[in-house]
Design a protein around this nucleic acid. Structure first.
Lengths: 296, 296
DNA sequence: GCCTGCAATACCCTCGAGGTATCAGGGAGC
DNA sequence: GCTCCCTGATACCTCGAGGGTATTGCAGGC
């Protein structure tokens, strides 16, 4: 009657590897068990999920569909566990996620004042997990910087801020008033190229035949700045992040021809919590005081 | 390790009734089994879900949280089944939900032309199930009229249209050029008051002490019009719905002081499908041709 | 032609979900 | 105050499903 989340987890493991033996190993179960469970799942859904030719395992269209749906379902189940555990601990806490450079204190304080008994916590995130913490229930609402994968989330724009190139203090471009993104074409980017699509389009490093994304990608801002200072490459970051982490051996230059970074609030779209709505309103109002942004 | 959807379903049954015996009956299982399963769920989640005083069963805060999370999770699981079944049938169909009065043909035709092999189907919905069909996977994208429960959905505004009062042809207000919502205060509304919050605020019927919502609520537009014609009451509907169902014994009058109805596209926020995105763009562009609407 | 790699099959064991019968405790009624 | 009844919990049984090991079947590669 109900689908079995364990079987879905097994399915995802196989679908990701397209190999029963290795999937079984990763799941810490025996391979025949996995074969049987997948077959049971196929019968339960009345749908063939894999085409098993000898020497190769591939997904059917139904399998593709299931893979696309199973992952968010498993993530939701995990989020459910986490939220129930939090509610059971009795501490009726409201948790806000934020990335360095964003000013969350006024909104958090306003929420605390309106709900004296409520514990409001903040959790620091990175560009990589800023939406994951929302999806898996670690935070109730998060400040995120676009672009993000919006699946499963409700998004509310808050503000925009310019992005700057972060350079070693002795870099050839350091001290310029402003540069173009093209000026960075020959640089090594120490961050996920997806975070700077405009650079991706012009980077010589990625345009070489067989050119792959640079291996060393550093997640925390502090690590990025450390490596910039060491001369290993450059990063492109929103202005507030850089100004938050001022240090003498690193400087920054505005980039003229790339759009600003959009900062939004994001929360689990399946939830409807008065506290989430209230916090979103407070944060938007506070933002509106300084720089009014259009409401959709 | 994974939560068990069957146990969650059992939990929801108990939480909705706050009665183990009746929940067991509804689930077609024996009551001791249900007691044991709920206890197992509590141990698994390490959270007490119910306070069982003799003579009464109540939800704990953790139970409230679980109830809020379990329902959408179960709905997602059901949607997953449906979509996989559809994908397995091989018919790679794209299904659009719409309510009467909305013009979907141009967008549907445009999608068909761009994907000659694709089957594009339309499914008629009502105000009551317009978002349910999206959540449970019966349609890939739906035209919906606000207000809707946006949980689990991504919403994209398309257009607005004025709402009119639908009256019997011999009604005292029939023939007026325009009325105020207050003119309907003494009328009987043959629809969910939530659909017309402005009426809800002024209706004498609902302001009487102990006044409840009127019992006979008719879901299909045809039924509503039939009962309006019979003189049982009035309804407030978007203009396009009424003009779609013209009949001589029913007339309508614009209402001056209520905001127009917002028509949106809605789809499952956990999904990211190229076809959904393409259809949304097509529909928005087609709408933009006639009456440009702001893009968020 | 043999070896190797990979999934499926055969067969066993354990545990957990379902059932029935019964108990325990608190309210309501007399 | 005693009894009855309502409601959930306990006790105990059965059976099916999930997990394990051993082995087979089949297709490529050397």
């Amino acid at each position: 009657m109900d689908v079995d989340l364990r079987k879905l987890r097994y399915f995802v493991a196989v679908a990701e590897r397209l190999h029963f033996g290795r999937a079984a190993e990763a799941l810490h179960i025996a391979q025949p068990v996995l074969s049987r469970q997948i077959r049971a799942l196929e019968e339960e859904l009345k749908a063939q999920l894999f085409v098993r030719t000898k020497r190769a395992t591939e997904l059917t269209p139904a399998g593709e569909q299931l893979l696309a749906d199973a992952r968010p379902l498993l993530a939701s189940a995990e989020a459910l566990r986490r939220r129930v555990a939090r509610a059971a601990r009795g501490t009726d806490a409201f948790i806000v996620g934020f990335m360095p450079g964003l000013i969350v204190t006024p909104a958090v304080r306003a929420l605390r004042e309106r709900h004296p008994g409520l514990t409001v916590e903040v959790v620091r995130t990175t560009w990589d997990d800023q939406v994951e913490v929302v999806r898996d229930g670690r935070v109730d609402i998060g400040y995120v910087r676009l672009p993000v994968d919006q699946r499963g989330l409700r998004i509310r724009p808050l503000l925009t801020e310019p992005r700057v190139a972060v350079l070693p203090a002795d870099h050839r471009l350091a001290g310029k008033d402003v540069i173009d993104i093209a000026d960075l074409a020959d640089e090594r980017l120490l961050q996920d190229p997806d975070a700077v699509p405009e650079w991706r389009d012009i980077a010589t490093e990625l345009r070489r035949p067989g050119g792959r994304r640079p291996e060393p990608i550093f997640h925390a801002v502090e690590e990025k700045l450390e490596h910039v200072a060491a001369g290993h490459g450059v990063v492109v970051l929103p202005l507030s992040v850089v100004s938050f982490y001022t240090r003498p051996d690193v400087t920054y230059v505005p980039i003229a021809d790339i759009p600003p970074n959009q900062v939004c609030l994001a929360w689990d779209s399946t939830r409807r919590s008065p506290l989430i709505a209230e916090f979103a309103t407070i944060a938007a109002d506070l933002q509106g005081d300084t720089a009014p942004s259009p409401e959709p």
